[in-house]
């Protein structure tokens, strides 16, 4: 019997439409509005930085996998995302070699050394950024560019500072702070024509991509929502340098918060798998972001707060598994 054998495999025999590539390329597409924004604000230089960063990430991934004799999986899109996110976290005025160095570190050290996709314990792009921050702090904190159309304070970008820098600076003219936190200032933050990292300035453009990912259920609303809500709550409590805590919107739209809350704190590999764990993760990110912004040595705390919470992920997972069915 059975001259022609059929294929056998374990159940299930049908699958949801969203496979790995779908997820990865959806994230890449969702990051595109912010790319167009950065080209508009900072010129073609922004595009070149992103291209260099992505190319370095993909090449580093391929070389690493070849060296480790692992399957080459550069088409899965994950290295492309790392490249884009790393570039988005750089000041637009950095030299062209910088994204290359950062991407190579992100892919080789933070990702492939630990086993590749799925095994890294911290977000590779943020690890790459942290490496660049530690190695070339001056470039990473001073190479800001004024966005096209000028800035609202007249200072950010031009004076090698971002709105968060200016708020934090001890010697800044109070009228600048006034202007930054005025309606006009908030509008500039929301649309993105302020000084800042390449892909982080426009809250609006990041929101477009982020909401698309939320609708497709590619990112989990729990982390994004709890992160943003925590920042809102804490911005009511924590003062901005003695000023009344009037400006929730300033804290929400400035710095890398939207880029972090929608695209980096939601990285699947380095965040909890449990629902309760994701709430905790988001709240933790919010707390540390605000603590760093208010009391820390750096003006901005998004990337370090996410990295810090990444490290806690296995611990959070372990203690948030919850009740199984039938164990009441």
């Amino acid at each position: 019997m059975a001259e022609k054998r059929l294929k056998v495999s374990a159940s299930p025999h049908i699958f949801a439409r969203q496979n790995l590539k779908f997820v990865m390329y959806a994230v890449i597409l969702a990051l595109m509005p912010a790319l167009f924004g950065s080209i508009y604000f900072y010129g073609l230089r922004a595009l070149y930085l992103v291209i260099l960063s992505v190319a370095a990430a993909v090449v580093a991934e391929a070389v690493c996998q070849w060296a480790y004799k692992r399957p080459i999986t550069i088409t899965d899109g994950s290295a492309i995302i790392t490249g884009i996110l790393l570039a988005y976290n750089l000041p637009p005025g950095v030299p062209y070699w910088m994204p290359v160095v950062g991407s190579v570190f992100a892919i080789v050290v933070a990702k492939q050394f630990f086993g590749g996709l799925g095994y890294n314990f911290i977000n590779p792009a943020l690890a790459g950024r942290a490496f660049l921050m530690a190695s070339w702090p001056v470039a990473m904190t001073h190479d800001w560019l004024p966005p096209a159309g000028g800035t609202i304070s007249g200072l950010d970008g031009i004076t090698r500072a971002t709105p968060l820098n200016l708020i934090k600076a001890a010697d800044v003219d109070p009228s600048v702070i006034e202007r930054l936190t005025s309606l006009e200032g908030i509008r500039a933050l929301f649309f993105g024509n302020v000084g800042g990292c390449l892909g982080e300035t426009s809250a609006l453009l990041l929101l477009i991509g982020g909401i698309a990912l939320l609708i497709l259920k590619i990112i989990d609303y729990r982390i994004t929502l709890s992160y943003l809500l925590t920042v809102v709550v804490l911005s009511l409590i924590l003062p901005i340098k003695g000023h009344p805590p009037y400006n929730i919107l300033f804290q929400l739209f400035s710095g890398g918060l939207f880029l972090g809350a929608f695209f980096m704190a939601t990285d699947m590999v380095t965040t909890p798998v449990t629902k309760r764990g994701r709430w905790i993760f988001g709240i933790g990110c919010g707390i540390f972001t605000m603590l760093i912004r208010t009391f820390g040595g750096y003006p901005e705390g998004v990337s370090y707060s996410i990295l810090f919470m990444n490290v806690w992920t296995p611990f959070i997972d372990r203690y948030t598994m919850g009740r199984r069915f039938g164990t009441r």
Partner: peptide, 19 residues
């Protein structure tokens, strides 16, 4: 099959509340 990316979707859908 590929490596787990810890997306947690299996956790979300498991009707027995397993991971």
């Amino acid at each position: 099959p590929g490596p787990c990316i810890r997306c947690g979707r299996c956790v979300d859908v498991c009707p027995m509340g397993l991971h």
